[in-house]
């Protein structure tokens, strides 16, 4: 099973929760960092990286000797990545989404695949936890194509090893966040009881609703702000699976890259309980199919 840890608002504690959940997970598990723009899970899991590879997007390369400047490719391209300008054909690889339309439409077979580096994918091991991370190249604008390739790799790995996965998703509620969580069995939404936390929590629920994936909330830094998130969850019947109090010891341990579940027996039990609640939620959902 795949559990995604997501949030609308950034900095609510996704990575803290992902690392701690992975640390207490009873079955074999892979910790996956899909927050490719700013991946942080490795800071906490401290994996030994055994393999790092560059990840590319296929973008068009034009053989000018074959190109007749017919313009079919630029008519089709929706991203202004290939263009006939006067007597020249120009490509703008950084605009390309890799749809392959230009290649398919060219009557002269003048277009072939070149590449643009999206970033890197790293794999490693942190004790018993398998680790997989995507990291976007600084200057690259598009994160979803890199995330898709990391997810493809994850799918292969999980099929082979039969392990579970905990995905640390990017913040926000637009395409990268939705891309990250769309194939999971459960979404854990980490929020905080502040007006910003509450507002973005509602946006996240709205964005993920069409996916029809069971979800629950974790309220981090409870004790600050107000109780509007909690009341909202009660009214809407969204299960709140855990509360983590605001605590300067936790904040300080976090700042040093410590896994919260390793701080004390109490925290370990809290996260074990959270893991059990997630599995229970997934089970209940399977018992009553939609």
């Amino acid at each position: 099973m795949i559990i995604s840890v997501a949030s609308g608002k950034g900095g609510t504690g996704k990575t803290t929760v992902s690392a701690s959940l992975a640390a207490v997970w009873k079955r074999p598990v892979t910790g996956v960092d899909l927050d490719v723009e700013e991946p942080n899970l490795h800071i906490f899991l401290k994996p030994d990286i055994v393999h790092e590879e560059k990840v590319y997007l296929e973008v068009p390369r034009v053989d000018e000797s074959r190109c007749t400047l017919c313009g079919k490719c630029s008519d089709l391209c929706q991203f202004k990545a290939i263009n006939v300008m006067g007597s020249a054909i120009l490509t703008f690889p950084e605009m390309c989404h890799g749809c392959g339309g230009c290649l398919a439409v060219c009557p002269e077979d003048a277009v072939s695949w070149g590449t643009r580096q999206l970033g890197t994918m790293s794999r490693g091991k942190s004790g018993p936890i398998d680790f997989l991370m995507g990291s976007l190249r600084v200057g690259e604008a598009m994160s979803p194509p890199l995330m898709r390739q990391v997810k493809d790799r994850l799918k292969c790995d999980l099929a082979r090893t039969g392990s579970d996965a905990i995905i640390d998703a990017p913040p926000g509620v637009s395409c990268p966040a939705v891309n990250a969580v769309m194939d999971s069995d459960f979404i854990l939404l980490v929020t905080e009881p502040t007006p910003f936390g509450f507002h973005d929590f509602q946006l996240a629920l709205e964005a993920f609703a069409p996916l029809n994936i069971p979800a629950g909330a974790l309220i981090n830094r409870s004790g600050i702000g107000d109780d509007s998130v909690q009341r909202f969850c009660q009214e809407q019947g969204i299960p709140v699976l855990a509360w983590i109090p605001f605590d300067t010891d936790i904040a300080s341990a976090y700042s040093r890259g410590k896994v919260i579940a390793d701080l004390s027996l109490e925290f370990r039990q809290k996260f074990s309980q959270l893991a059990a609640s997630i599995i229970e939620q997934i089970g209940e959902n399977e018992a009553c199919p939609k």
């Binding site: 950034g10 723009e37 700013e38 942080n40 200057g139 604008a141 913040p171 890259g257």
Partner: peptide, 28 residues
């Protein structure tokens, strides 16, 4: 926006100054 992707890149072009807010943590 947070991150370093498309919305952030779009917010930088032609900007005179980026004020980066960080926090004293390893992630920050």
């Amino acid at each position: 926006a947070p991150g370093i992707g498309c919305p952030v890149i779009s917010s930088l072009s032609g900007t005179d100054l980026a004020a980066i807010v960080t926090e004293p943590t390893l992630s920050g």
